[in-house]
């Protein structure tokens, strides 16, 4: 942990597309990855985050600042997380889950995973393949057999609007 000083320490984070961000150390160390760097004394200059782009990092920093401003009240933190994620589209959420994983931020990871699941819940198999970039490796016969086995789970699926 940082030594007790009068002014809060600020860290500079660099995204993989070379954008620089200033963030209070107290908020940034929500990321275990960043905290480890700080503790190892590597935080003197600029902290490079090679797996996060600027757009996603900006969003993560907004979250870091927002959630660390809330005192220890799990209810309030939860409602902040819900609100923070409510207007994010699938692509943004997907970038964010990768960033949360890389930055080792379990609270964000859990919240984004749950949000992605909520978006996926009633989607079609085709939608999931497109959004996750997955190639269908079943033969038509194999796919038909798997589908037949779980036919009832295809009821009530939303029509694809790719949103």
């Amino acid at each position: 942990m940082a030594a007790e000083t009068g002014t809060p320490t600020t860290l500079t984070l660099k995204s993989n597309d070379d954008e620089l961000f200033s963030v209070a150390e107290s908020a940034a160390i929500l990321s275990v990855t960043i905290r480890n760097m700080v503790e190892d004394g590597c935080a003197g200059g600029v902290i490079p985050l090679d797996n996060v782009d600027g757009k996603t990092l900006a969003s993560v920093i907004t979250y870091m600042n927002g959630i660390s401003a809330i005192p220890a009240d799990e209810e309030k933190k939860k409602s902040y997380r819900d609100k923070f994620l409510s207007d994010k589209d699938f692509e943004t959420l997907a970038d964010m889950v990768l960033a949360a994983n890389y930055l080792n931020m379990s609270c964000l990871m859990d919240a984004v995973s749950a949000k992605i699941a909520q978006v996926m819940e009633k989607k079609s198999v085709g939608w999931v393949r497109r959004k996750f970039g997955i190639e269908n490796d079943y033969t038509p016969e194999e796919e038909a057999a798997v589908k037949e086995e779980h036919k009832w789970t295809f009821e009530g699926v939303e029509t694809d609007d790719d949103n």
Partner: peptide
């Protein structure tokens, strides 16, 4: 882990 059973069974078809 966050999905209900019905969605999980359907998504066995993904790949």
């Amino acid at each position: 882990y966050n999905l209900p059973i019905k969605s999980l069974l359907r998504f066995k078809c993904v790949s």
